[in-house]
């Protein structure tokens, strides 16, 4: 479980996160939704420690970021997995080398064990016969899956995904969403996902946090989203005609 209390982040005069509290549960896909520029990526990067926070605290199963030494933080990073918005695969390395990278860097496993673990993770995300291809040689959907494989290769306790299905067709997007949800449940990971894709919200939104202008103004499950009276959330989530119909149908049940 991750508990965030009152975090603030500023870039110079730009106050991006204005005191966010949130709880992300273990074994659940916790979503963060919000308009472009509302601070989703910055929020995730604060949790990851890429950005230092200006105020507030993050609690990783009883371990407070504010009380950690630099060494503690480095150790914590070995428990984090991250899928970046653009996959962020190392383009000079093959698929296999990308996935095995953390193992080779941080463990003393033999090359046989590394190969086994790498192939296990690649299988888990349904990548076959692509071990020796470079990221530029595979499709966007495959890149996302390889990025997921790389994020889970060290058996993380926490998984972060920044818009994991942006830029994918609806079918592939759903496959990726379901994959992340399955992995979350299977390995009992605390997963936090940024998205502005409403299909994802209604599909895998175990718990949804809604950010507006650097503040969290709403939270609830995907069912709550359907029945919400919060006008801002309704306007954001049900912006298209199709989703408006879905909502009307759900509310009239």
């Amino acid at each position: 479980m991750i508990r965030v209390t009152n975090i603030h982040k500023k870039f110079g005069d730009l106050h991006v996160l204005k005191g966010i509290d949130a709880t992300f549960m273990k074994g659940k896909t916790n979503l963060i939704i919000g308009k472009s520029g509302s601070g989703k990526t910055v929020f995730l990067k604060c949790l990851l420690g890429i950005h230092d926070i200006d105020d507030g605290d993050v609690d990783f199963d009883g371990r407070l970021i504010s009380e950690m030494s630099i060494e503690d933080r480095r150790k914590l990073r070995l428990e984090l997995g991250m899928v970046f918005q653009g996959s962020a695969l190392f383009d000079s390395l093959t698929v296999e080398e990308n996935v095995s990278f953390p193992l080779r860097m941080f463990t003393k496993k033999s090359s046989k064990e590394i190969a086994e673990r790498t192939n296990f993770c690649l299988n888990r995300v349904n990548i076959e016969n692509a071990n020796h291809l470079f990221p530029a040689e595979i499709s966007g959907g495959m890149q996302k899956r390889v990025a997921i494989a790389r994020a889970i290769v060290m058996n993380p306790r926490y998984l972060f995904c920044d818009e994991p299905n942006s830029g994918l067709d609806p079918k592939t997007a759903m496959v990726i969403d379901e994959l992340i949800q399955e992995i979350t449940q299977e390995f009992d990971i605390t997963t936090v996902i940024n998205t502005h894709d409403m299909n994802s919200v209604l599909q895998i939104g175990d718990h949804v946090n809604f950010l507006v202008g650097g503040k969290k103004i709403w939270e609830g499950s995907k069912e709550d989203v359907l029945h919400t009276d919060n006008q801002e959330l309704a306007d954001f989530v049900f912006s298209s005609e199709l989703f408006k119909k879905v909502r009307r149908a759900a509310r009239s049940e």
């Binding site: 990067k45 990851l48 420690g49 890429i50 480095r74 150790k75 990073r77 070995l78 984090l80 991250m82 970046f84 918005q85 653009g86 962020a88 695969l89 190392f90 383009d91 990278f101 953390p102 860097m105 941080f106």
Partner: peptide
Amino acid sequence: EQIEALEVMG
């Protein structure tokens, strides 16, 4: 974001 990916890994 490849550099950030490295940072996140530690």
